[in-house]
Amino acid sequence: MAADAWAEYRELLADLLQTDDLAPLLDRASRVTAPAGLQLLKDGGPADAMYLVLDGRLEVHVEFGAHTIRLGEIEPGNWVGEVAYYTRCGTACSTVAALMPSVLLRLPFEAYTDLIRSQAEVACRLAHRLIVMQVQRLRATVNDPVLDPEGRLLMLGDLSIPLDRASRHHGGLLEFIRNLTGVR
């Protein structure tokens, strides 16, 4: 894909990965445009790539037959599909669809594996970002969904990390100790 295909998102990507060296990621990824309603992942269906939201918004559900629990929305700067990669199951554990016209970075699983093996530093930054996102989702996805006024089951937590918090990088040992002790 031509390098300028990413031009308007380079700043966001550099901020997320905390580096201007985006080539290792972008050389392995493709840009995808998703119209509203397009299903990127189907709960229980095959999954072979993860997606980073560059623009737009996605919606996440867990399904059982015709019934669903709405887990929340995914904003720009957040990934989906990483659970299928890291659990090595090859199937999605939720349904993810575009809530509005969205632009996504698609990274096939095999390309991510190649990134880990050949570009460890970039993969490490990406993995750390995925960890922070998963922590957010685990904290938000509580065990007791609530019914909304229309009778739909949903979660009240926020699945996404807002962009203004997205660029927080790993602060090292000192930051860890500060977090653990609550001392700033």
Binding site: V62, E82, V83, Y86
Partner: peptide
């Protein structure tokens, strides 16, 4: 990341 992904998958399974 793998450990947390397993937890998320289990959480979704519980919800299902």
């Amino acid at each position: 990341a793998s450990h947390l992904a397993m937890d998320l998958k289990a959480r979704h399974l519980a919800l299902r």
